[in-house]
């Protein structure tokens, strides 16, 4: 399977969700739909990836696994930096400075939304990936909230993982 197919499919998926009358009136609905699809896929992916592997001993090892193996499998590169929060030990920041699925997306190509509908933005392209991460973590037995934050570089995205319980 060619890699470009997945990126094209993801782009069309975002476009569909953002423009579909089923979701396009509010940002929450768009977020919910994309994040849920990501969760579902991430959850299934991690099961297949972990099938032949020993269990990971703790949360940090799980996060590291996602930064390397899972990311490579999904985005063909590993996460560029993993940081933990200074004072809080259940927050992890996974930064990809050149996030693959943002590379061919340009905000200038988004058509203006018609009245009362949701305007597409770059942020919509990192919701599904955030869902993937949350789903994968869930599959590893970790409940978390994953928030994608764009920037500061053009194609950079940081996924903030807030671990609720193990």
């Amino acid at each position: 399977m060619a890699d470009s197919c997945l990126e094209l499919l993801h782009n069309q998926m975002v476009e569909y969700v953002v423009t579909s009358p089923a979701h396009n009136t509010q940002r929450e609905a768009v977020y919910f739909a994309l994040e849920n699809m990501g969760f579902d896929v991430g959850h299934r992916m991690i099961h297949r990836l972990m099938k032949e592997r020993p269990l990971l001993p703790n949360t940090l090892e799980c996060i590291k696994f996602l930064c390397k193996d899972f990311w490579v499998e999904t985005f063909k590169k590993s996460v560029d930096s993993l940081r933990t929060h200074k004072n809080v030990n259940n927050i992890f920041l996974l930064k990809d400075t050149n996030f693959r699925w943002l590379k061919h997306v340009s905000p200038t190509s988004f058509p203006p939304a018609s009245d009362g509908t949701y305007q597409r933005s770059m942020e919509d392209y990192v919701i599904f990936p955030a869902g993937l991460l949350r789903g994968a973590l869930y599959g590893l037995g970790i409940q978390a909230v994953v928030e994608p934050i764009l920037g500061p570089e053009v194609h950079a995205c940081t996924f903030q993982v807030f671990v609720k319980s193990e």
Partner: peptide, 14 residues
């Protein structure tokens, strides 16, 4: 460049 076909298939299924 190739990708894990399972990932594509699962994404499409979703």
């Amino acid at each position: 460049e190739k990708i894990n076909a399972e990932l594509f298939t699962m994404t499409y299924g979703a």
